[in-house]
Amino acid sequence: MDYRIVERESFKVIGKGTEIKTSNGENNKEIPTFWSEVTASGEGDEICRYAENGDLMGVCMEFNHASETFTYFIGAETAEESEKFDSIVIPAATWAVFTSVGPMPHAIQQVWQKIYSEWFPSTGYEHAGVPEFELYPPGNVNREDYRCEVWVGIKKK
């Protein structure tokens, strides 16, 4: 898999989150549904106005393995405050950054699957226990050439 390693300081993200189930692949259905809801309500455009670099993010955090759930947070990196939206801090970390090319959500779902089934087992890295995130630049997410990224916090085994 094509990837790069990036060191990054902590940063703030504002947005909206929801609890997602992971059992039976429910996350692959619930996350696109959540994106559709946030987009249809106009909140996606509101969140995007905070984005310092124009990118939206999908953050995976607060994993609860016992209940097979995690929080998925649609947001934007910003230094601003918001009365309407929640804010989270992504900690400083070393990140493995993977590029996804193709229409959403299928293309990025394939990248996630390969990270855990192929990349982690074949490298000297393990998960750093920090939130993971998807970085979505402006563009048509339905195009065959749409490019976005998956950022996974890592540490040496």
Rank of each mutant, 00 (worst) to 15 (best):
T71M: 14
W119L: 04
H106E: 12
G17R: 01
F63D: 13
K114R: 15
I90Y: 03
G58F: 05
I88W: 02
A40D: 14
V111N: 06
E9D: 15
T78R: 07
T94L: 10
P137C: 09
K156S: 10
V89L: 12
T18H: 04
K155M: 12
M57W: 01
A79R: 09
R49P: 00
E132P: 00
C48G: 00
V111R: 00
S41R: 08
P32I: 10
V141N: 09
L135A: 07
E37L: 05
E7W: 05
G129N: 05
I14G: 01
V130H: 12
V141T: 11
T22Q: 08
A66E: 15
S36F: 05
F85T: 04
S67L: 15
D86E: 13
K29L: 14
N142E: 13
G25A: 07
Q110P: 00
I90K: 04
V97I: 05
F133Y: 12
Y125T: 12
F133H: 07
T78H: 10
N27T: 00
D45V: 04
D145W: 11
G124K: 14
F133S: 01
S23C: 02
N140C: 05
I14S: 01
D55W: 03
Q110L: 10
G25H: 07
A40N: 13
C60V: 04
S82M: 07
R4G: 01
